[in-house]
Design a protein around this nucleic acid. Structure first.
Length: 336
DNA sequence: TTCGAAAGACAACTCCACCA
DNA sequence: TGGTGGAGTTGTCTTTCGAA
């Protein structure tokens, strides 16, 4: 990601976020307005995250502020990190109780994840003791969802359709009936259903992103472009004649027969044309996105656009002006 | 029906100016 | 020196639509 100023955006993982907070809490502690804590916090963060040497003091301070205001971590998790960094800090009673609860919940979830249950090959049934385990995960998930603010709910992944996953859903369905019948309003129904979906994810071991939208390692290259580039690489790596020669080795068929030669040539031409077409598609996309960005910058900040694109753009603009003027019969000389 | 492109909305992140 | 608001940029996700 490239943010304003042309520097590359980094992706902050949950571990880095936690370390940023550890450094913040450790150096800032309970004090307010303490002096030079940012430098100390920065040094401590560098110890915790040696690979993040490019993070500046200001970056780190911004990041801490962002984490604290964006619900990246829940209150209980924040309190836990604070107490971990500043052991003398007692915290308030609620948070103090919440931290062990979270720890316990995490432990439960860890234990629940990816149960190796036995699926009966005939009727997709699940053995009774696994059903009990699943029921307890379901109950935990629903309990958790009920007390969780909507914005803190994790984004659930799409679950691939498989015999195993279908069996889990089939096994959970009858368990939901009791809860749904007792549900008094839509909110409760919603919470039950979300809890059930969460339970399915946990049972099958699907990876759940952290609450509040996880930071994912993104790629600047769109997926379709990567696919085309792969295709091109594969097509280029293909040695048609050599492969065919190897395939026919040991037989009496000669590759120099006119019919075979013609077919090979056609195949090679076909591949070449495909590669050219794929390449053109990528170039069209690059050009389009370059123009799109220029237009957007032109609308928002012309000064900046000319500064960034000076050499080629100035030329292009001058050409355009010259063309317009010449259209009205004005001669403006040659370009330098 | 499936796949890919385009467009829009929103989230994530960075930088800078300003104030106390 | 630290805190903060706000602007700007880019990535990701979702929806829509057309082509195969």
């Amino acid at each position: 990601m490239v943010a304003s100023g042309g520097t590359r955006c980094m992706r902050w993982s949950q571990t880095m976020n936690a370390n940023a907070l550890r450094a913040y809490f450790r150096e800032k502690g309970e004090e307010t307005g303490c002096l030079a804590y940012r430098a100390r916090m920065h040094r401590f963060f560098a110890e915790l995250e040696p690979s993040s040497s490019h993070v500046t003091e200001q970056n780190l301070a911004d990041r801490v502020r962002y984490i604290l205001h964006s619900n990246t971590f829940g209150d209980a998790e924040l309190e836990r990190l604070r107490r971990e960094a500043v052991p003398s800090s007692d915290g308030n009673a609620t948070a103090g109780n919440a931290a062990p609860l979270i720890a316990q919940q995490t432990a439960n979830v860890d234990a629940a994840v990816n149960i190796q249950f036995v699926v009966d090959s005939d009727d997709d049934g699940i053995v009774p003791h696994e059903l009990e385990k699943m029921r307890s995960i379901l109950e935990e998930s629903m309990l958790e969802t009920r007390s969780m603010p909507l914005e803190n709910r994790p984004r659930l992944p799409r679950i691939p359709v498989s015999k195993r996953n279908r069996a889990v859903v089939r096994a959970l369905n009858p368990m939901l009936v009791t809860y749904l019948e007792a549900s008094r309003d839509l909110c409760e129904t919603d919470s039950i259903l979300f809890g059930a979906a969460l339970a399915v994810c946990r049972i099958i071991g699907a990876k759940l992103p952290m609450a509040g939208r996880a930071t994912q390692q993104g790629s600047a290259i769109p997926a379709w472009r990567k696919r085309i580039e792969d295709r091109i690489a594969k097509a280029r790596a293909l040695r048609v004649v050599r492969t065919v020669r190897m395939a026919f080795a040991g037989t009496n068929i000669s590759l120099s027969l006119p019919d075979i030669t013609q077919k090979l040539t056609e195949r090679i031409d076909d591949l070449k044309q495909k590669i050219a077409a794929w390449g053109k598609r990528i170039r069209r996309f690059s050009e389009r996105s370059r123009r799109f960005n220029q237009n957007r910058l032109f609308q928002s900040d012309q000064k900046r656009l000319y500064k960034l694109e000076r050499p080629e753009l100035c030329g292009a603009v001058q050409d355009r002006i010259r063309l317009t003027l010449s259209h009205f019969g004005v001669d403006c000389g040659q370009r330098p």
